[in-house]
């Protein structure tokens, strides 16, 4: 396992979490819960962007591990 593949794995987990939060915020009939889920989803989105950037950087540095 390389760093690049680890980062890749976390990135896909983050994407999964983001999608699930989005669907939960739609499904709940509780406005407060819906708001919190949505806010968390936005935070996760920011983290996703950062990790994505790091992934691109790693691919430039170590092109042999590009997936």
């Amino acid at each position: 396992m390389t760093i690049a593949s680890d980062v890749n794995q976390v990135l896909s987990t983050i994407k999964g979490i983001e999608a699930q939060l989005s669907s939960m915020s739609m499904n709940t009939s509780n406005p407060e819960a819906s708001k919190i889920f949505h806010e968390t989803m936005l935070v996760i989105g920011e983290i996703k962007t950062d990790v994505q950037k790091r992934k691109t950087q790693l691919e430039i540095e170590e092109p042999q591990y590009k997936s």
């Binding site: 889920f37 968390t40 935070v43 950062d50």
Partner: peptide, 17 residues
């Protein structure tokens, strides 16, 4: 720094949710 910042941000979000 980037990872630490994001880990902290995520922890705060977890506490809230």
């Amino acid at each position: 720094e980037m990872y630490n910042k994001n880990a902290k941000k995520l922890q705060e979000a977890i506490n809230k949710v």
